[in-house]
């Protein structure tokens, strides 16, 4: 126990990085995903094509590689970013693509009848989208969005590649210097607790939306 207390300060420092990457990526990539989804579903062939290409590139290459590209690669075109900014940009752009596809699935699952009823009632496109379609999409996309958020908690460990210290990096350092596996086990428990909290919050949100079917 005293050993665990001893390694905790360093682990907690790592945890701070894990949490801010998770929270800010979540806050930025979900709205960006909605915007990308809207553009992807727009009537303009150019916008559709651009978004498709963007999604293909992001989903077709590893996040690790994207992190390296944003931080080291952009230097060659004169864009120098600090590590934290590079991490947030790469994570946000990556997760937004996945969220956009989840939202697109949600929007497409709403029956044509909902649009037609809105039209016959004289609702504007804006009122139809924000008042009729989106609230129903939210309910439907909650499970897959939850999946992505849980994956995001674990993906934050990739920041080590840019030299940021997260939970895993702290654990590995401690494990190496003290020749013990214990820090790795503690890191595992920390992730499990984080994900349990996220799962609980998602479940609460789902229950909130359970008032209709």
């Amino acid at each position: 126990m005293s050993y665990i207390m001893e390694i905790m300060p360093l682990m907690m420092q790592g945890l701070r990085t894990t949490i801010w990457v998770f929270v800010f990526t979540g806050l930025l990539s979900i709205p960006l995903g909605m915007i990308i989804c809207t553009l992807r579903l727009s009537k303009s062939k150019i916008l559709q094509g651009t978004m498709q290409l963007y999604i293909l590139i992001v989903r077709g290459t590893p996040l690790l590689l994207q992190l390296i590209f944003v931080f080291f690669g952009l230097v060659y075109v004169g864009i120098v970013l600090d590590r934290g900014t590079a991490v947030l940009i790469a994570f946000t752009l990556n997760y937004a693509a996945y969220f956009a596809e989840i939202f697109r699935g949600g929007v497409m699952s709403i029956s044509e009848g909902q649009y037609e009823a809105s039209k016959v009632l004289g609702l504007s496109k804006r009122d139809t989208y924000f008042g009729v379609i989106l609230p129903q999409v939210f309910k439907r996309v909650l499970p897959p969005v939850g999946n992505e958020l849980i994956t995001l908690v674990k993906d934050t460990s990739l920041v080590y590649v840019l030299g940021l210290g997260d939970v895993i990096r702290a654990a590995k350092t401690l494990s190496n210097t003290q020749a013990s596996l214990m820090p790795i086990v503690v890191a595992g428990v920390i992730y499990l607790v984080l994900i349990a909290i996220v799962t609980y919050l998602l479940r609460r949100t789902e229950i909130k939306y359970n008032y209709y079917r």
Partner: peptide
């Protein structure tokens, strides 16, 4: 106006809100 065969009510709104939503917006 049109009453659809399948009614196409808005499932996320109560019976009352199904009626008030268009009244307020339109």
């Amino acid at each position: 106006g049109l009453v659809f065969q399948g009614f196409n009510l808005f499932p996320h709104l109560s019976a009352l809100e199904n009626i008030t939503f268009p009244l307020i917006k339109v």
